[in-house]
Amino acid sequence: MRFVTFGEMLLRLSPVEHRRFLQADSFEAVYGGGEANTAVSLAQFGCDTKFVTKLPDHEIGQAAINTLRQYGVDTSEILRGGDRIGIYYLEKGAAQRPSKVIYDRAGSSIAASKAEEFDWERLLSGTDWFHITGITPALSAECAKASLEAVKTAKKLGVTVSCDINFRRKLWDKETAGKVMAGILSYTDVYIGGRDQAEELFGIPTNASDDSDYEAYKAVAEKLKERFGFKKVAITLRTTLSSDENKWAALLYDGTNHCFSREYRSLIVDRVGGGDSFAAGLIYALGEGMDTQAAVDFAAAASCLKLSVEGDCNIISADEVKALAFGSGSAQVQR
């Protein structure tokens, strides 16, 4: 199968060793971004994966592209131009101190791009699966237009579309996000979202008594499918115990079966990209023809393993995910 993702590639700058921004005298640089992270994960699973974006035609833009190439992502359709790459600063939390993100991405090459720069008929020709998130349409009105045109074209060409809501309050308000994303979701086959995003953006109440109230999430999945006509609805169930430890599980609903993954309790090396790796795991599993239970088990295991990997991207193979999802799950040294 051939996969295409579309979004912004960012430069991430982080103080070293859990230092706060105010303590930092140096920053660690890595590259990533929602759809780029998903593309890298799919490439690690052995998939033919292309990433579409626009990056400045200078050395920093090239360094971002080189990161994708390093991990096997097809970068042949990345546009070059514009003035800058988007930046985000990440202060890693510890214990009860939360992580913090400061964006410096206004006017980035993709945010300043025009929708007509992306020829979706050509870009999606011969593609089996297209993936996008709610981050890309939040960047600008033109990015929202390009995102909608992409999913419309994908639907016309018979390409499966997945969308991870990924609502970012620092990029747009929930009223605008709900309106724009509703349009994109009307062309989406596989919905991916966090536990509360359906209520935030679409007014579908969760009504969960606590984190273990799985019946409430079943109802949310059913209402989402009823409203938008999705083939599959995935809801991630992340519980933050501290900045160092999360509980992670997920639900996948196929219109008949509500399947929950096992719940993982994970110590965190790097939290960023956990949702992107879940999306990649789900896309891969469904593309491989796994049934609903196996698909959500694979996706949840992929995201659990990502929490152990530094940087935005999940440098984990499909076999490693399968060993956790369907094997013993032992973390013993492999000799």
Rank of each mutant, 00 (worst) to 15 (best):
D270N: 13
R80H: 10
A24P: 02
V272Y: 03
G61H: 10
E116Y: 13
D164Y: 13
R84I: 03
Q62T: 02
F298S: 05
L10S: 02
S317E: 01
A106W: 04
K50C: 10
V233D: 01
G274H: 02
G275V: 01
M1D: 04
L123W: 05
V40G: 08
A177Y: 00
R84F: 13
F260E: 04
A299T: 09
C47Y: 08
V180P: 05
L282K: 09
F45M: 13
L282I: 14
Y71S: 06
K218C: 11
S328E: 15
V333T: 00
R195K: 14
L252I: 07
G81E: 11
L185W: 09
T53N: 10
I204T: 08
G193T: 00
S108N: 12
D57S: 13
F230P: 04
A64Y: 10
T239P: 00
Y71R: 04
G82C: 07
I87R: 01
P137A: 07
G33Q: 06
G61T: 11
S277F: 01
L123S: 08
E116N: 15
K232E: 10
M181C: 12
F6R: 00
I135L: 07
E35V: 13
K218R: 11
R69A: 07
A144S: 13
R122S: 15
F298D: 06
G93M: 09
C313A: 05
C163N: 05
W129Q: 09
S212D: 13
S113A: 15
E91H: 08
R195M: 10
N257D: 12
V269R: 08
D48I: 00
F230K: 05
F167E: 11
P137I: 09
T176R: 14
R20P: 01
Y89A: 02
C259V: 12
E28S: 04
I87L: 10
D57A: 13
L123C: 09
A331T: 15
S14L: 02
G134K: 06
A150E: 14
G134V: 01
T206I: 14
T136A: 05
F167K: 09
K223T: 07
V220Q: 08
V30K: 10
K156G: 07
L282P: 12
E35H: 00
F118I: 06
C313V: 12
G281Y: 13
D210A: 07
G275N: 00
H131T: 11
G32K: 03
E121W: 00
Y88V: 01
T256E: 14
G93H: 07
K223V: 04
I132V: 14
Y191R: 05
Y103P: 15
A279K: 03
G289K: 06
A141I: 02
V40I: 15
R227G: 03
D211I: 02
Y191E: 09
K223I: 01
S125L: 02
L22S: 13
E59K: 01
L224R: 06
F228M: 09
V309I: 15
F130Y: 15
L124W: 04
Q334V: 14
I85R: 02
